[in-house]
């Protein structure tokens, strides 16, 4: 297969950046999208040009490190698939493919297709955990958890933190990411004592990091490689409302 790949090149946050066109031939349909970029990079290196920087690690769809906007869609054309699990057989021979980094104000470009997603970690630090120090846990069977709750918590906990939801959202909102963690922990008895403060604190951190608000466009869930449902955002909003009505303040800073 042969492709024309237009790749976003940007040397750093100061640089304006531009799309640069490359012809990539001898592509096997069995290559993953990232392997196609590997091939391009090998050729650029031998030609004395700088290879394209992109983030990736596990290459099996679970670490959340990779993430490219491909032809305008976060993680590309295949639903529920991370960029590393997208294969070239999904494209047609001769296609022109446009590759860009995640675009969102809280995700500044580091280089080429690499962005800084540290803002997502900040949101978790605001309360995306259960405060249980090592050694203080009760016996695991002391608190049974209804299977439906465990399953639902798992579904939300499956978020890989890739940031596709933010890249896809016209508002640059990270509500799906934040809601997934609030829903995961809020659904379990272990997370109940901090449910109010967690919802309020994570929302505050989300807004402070510069992520936009949610207007229910649903683009986030459409591109989510793990299929986190929009209902999690509804749950999050409900938790915030509930916490506010109960007069729960956030945690003291």
């Amino acid at each position: 297969m042969r492709f024309t790949v237009r790749v976003w090149r940007q040397t750093g946050s100061e640089d304006a950046g531009r799309l640069v066109e490359y012809d990539v031939d001898d592509v096997s349909p069995d290559m993953s999208f990232l392997e196609m970029l590997d091939v391009l990079n090998e050729r650029l290196t031998l030609r004395g040009e700088e290879p394209v920087a992109f983030d990736h690690d596990c290459r099996e769809g679970i670490c959340g490190m990779c993430g490219l906007t491909i032809n305008g869609v976060a993680h590309g054309p295949r639903r529920a698939t991370t960029t590393c699990q997208l294969h070239m057989r999904e494209f047609t021979d001769g296609d022109t493919i446009v590759v860009e980094p995640w675009r969102a104000a809280p995700f500044p470009v580091v280089r080429d297709l690499v962005v800084d997603r540290g803002a997502l970690d900040e949101v978790v630090r605001a309360g995306g955990y259960v405060s249980v120090s090592t050694g203080s846990a009760p016996e695991a069977h002391a608190t049974p958890v209804a299977r439906a709750d465990a399953d639902k918590a798992f579904e939300s906990a499956a978020c890989i933190g890739c940031g596709a939801c933010v890249a896809a959202c016209p508002n640059g909102s990270a509500m799906l990411f934040t809601a997934a963690k609030v829903t995961h922990l809020g659904r379990l008895p272990q997370g109940a004592p901090e449910r109010d403060t967690r919802a309020l604190d994570m929302l505050a951190a989300h807004d402070e990091a510069g992520f936009g608000g949610c207007t229910n466009t649903g683009e986030c869930t459409a591109v989510c490689p793990k299929g986190i449902p929009l209902a999690d955002i509804a749950q999050f909003n409900q938790d915030v409302l509930r916490a506010s009505l109960r007069g729960a303040g956030g945690r003291p800073a």
Partner: peptide, 18 residues
């Protein structure tokens, strides 16, 4: 015990146990 307390969603049986 530690992981359950942290909210790790282990698979459970219908009775709510692990």
């Amino acid at each position: 015990d530690q992981c359950v307390a942290q909210g790790v969603p282990f698979a459970r049986e219908y009775g709510g146990l692990l």
